[in-house]
Design a protein around this nucleic acid. Structure first.
Lengths: 188, 188, 188, 188
DNA sequence: TATGAATGAGCTTTCATTCAT
DNA sequence: TATGAATGAAAGCTCATTCAT
């Protein structure tokens, strides 16, 4: 019934599958059984739709980890580090998120779109950076800032390759080696 | 003088800076002082131009590492591994290649473009995989295949974050931690 | 008011006068005071417009004979045959139809267009064939099928020559000789 | 070796099969292994090529009947009339001419092309008219001029339907009924 | 005679956006 | 909130034609 929601749901799917530039608003309207007039009633323009869609997407993805307590005092630093990584790998694997992540990378790598959503990207990056740093700060052998940057980048790369690989990608094995490697580096 | 070359040079730049879909052929022609007719005389269509541009780009990038001998028998396995990584980081840093790499990621993450150049991507990935495996095979503690996938993915991620970061990105420090980490993992 | 109708009316006229291939959509739009966008809003593409225009044209032409009763039981076979022919000659002469008929022949003789509308042509031919056969079946000396084919062909030819002749064409005299000739053949 | 001839041969075939407007000069060049430059060296422009091609085509078609003597004094009027018709039907059936006739009708029915070659059409029509009249003049019951127009038109129509029919068209039977009918009309 | 690079006008089509209802 | 007719700018592409070689 909520047509605005319908439009956004369809938009996110089509944007992800066909690419933003290759998805005319008319296609979104057709798939969500809504008139073009209504679409422009709810969203200022195509860029506005993109922004709202992107925000909603980010929100959905984040909901996954929300119930996990990052500062659980009962856990050791090592346990918190590992569980943080596990959580990220878990979200990556979630079938329903695949489309979202693909779209995310698409926007990230397309100059025009990236510029448009720069503020949102920056904010999110800052949050991730801080959450890694808050863990690494407790580890003497870590270079908290650099290692956080590195972890984010590497996880990005693994997600990227996993998401766009067609045949089965050895994600589980990579995860294990990945974690092992960082525990070694951090001396945990 | 060689107008076809001019067109390709301009195309690669505009594609990278503005995005493929946001770069009309007319813009490419304007920047290379050439008529639209000529562009379609030399390239079957826009996709054909993209393909040729992509091939040329890949070739330019590869030329960097060509003079480095991968199977130098004088070098130890560790030295070969490290030098291979150094080479990749070097190419990444090369100012002239920045545009190319950005374009590369753009194509990779846009479903339509990715599909179009799938064969070229696959081929290149295979080559990278093999070159890593050929090194890791000599290291007992390595999981040659999985580690190669992982290395490629991580390097991708680092490149991605480096390329699109606006302010100074601690690439050098990341490189050091990155290499150190893998030497630990591989027990070198 | 009905812009779609306007477009079709102009299209049929320009198609007939200049030829389908020599009539850009822009010309149709200019003559009907309509934007190019609207033309493609109402018709899928130029071929779609052609199809709709052709259907409408065929319908207009057919309306002429509709009020004449073919199976009027009061008429003799001879009378029915003659009146059928008269009706066809009448439609041919109708000034308003001249353009339509010319367009019809144009489409018929251009391979690409003919192919596009093959189904419509076939259907119409079948109807004409049947209407002639239903009359000739009552005449013993007639070879119902062959004569029907022949009649259609001959009438086509006469229409063709009449329509494209510039100076006065002796259509009335030809009609008389034509009817007389067939009555002789059929022994009526 | 004679490239000009090659061009014309290919042109006539492509014009007939695809239509004049749908046959770019580039296609003709490709099929005849000739450069575009050369094509424009031999023919002033596309219309010039059309004209030469049309002339050559007409010439080829006419060669068929040339060896038949129309004013053979040994033959009766009836025999001359019938043999004239037979000749025309024969030429129509000739497989090699099918393409030519189709092209002929195409040009005839396309306003732009018809105008371009009007003089050639008129001349040819006049010749046909005279050849029929020269026979019919000897027949008292004939209306020499009107009947000639009618005969030409009917034969046109039969050719038209025969040429563009896909399945087998009962041409032979039609020919027989056609000749019989006219002999009746002329009282021969 | 022969080539093919180069041009420019024009074509079909797409699409974001507006607006009257 | 909801529709879809209507617009206009711009896109990709075609093609006859020219011209230096």
């Amino acid at each position: 019934m909520d047509k605005k929601q319908q439009i956004m749901d369809v938009a996110i799917e089509l944007f992800a599958k066909r690419g933003y530039e290759n998805t005319p608003i008319s296609a979104i309207c057709k798939h969500s059984n809504v008139s073009k007039g209504l679409a422009f009633h709810h969203f200022e323009n195509k860029e506005g739709l993109l922004r709202e869609v992107f925000l909603r997407m980010a929100q959905i993805i984040e909901e996954v980890g929300d119930n996990v307590d990052l500062v659980n005092e009962e856990l050791s630093t090592k346990e918190r580090f590992v569980s943080h990584l596990e959580k990220i790998f878990l979200s990556m694997t979630c079938a329903e998120h695949k489309l979202y992540y693909q779209f995310d990378f698409q926007v990230l790598c397309q100059p025009a779109l990236r510029t448009l959503l720069k503020d949102l990207f920056d904010e999110r990056y800052q949050l991730m950076l801080e959450s890694f740093q808050s863990i690494l700060n407790d580890i003497p052998s870590a270079d908290s800032l650099v290692d956080s940057h590195m972890l984010i980048a590497e996880l990005d790369g693994i997600a990227l390759n996993y998401l766009f690989a067609e045949d089965e990608y050895p994600l589980t094995k990579i995860k294990q080696r990945f974690i092992k490697k960082h525990l070694l580096l951090l001396g945990l």
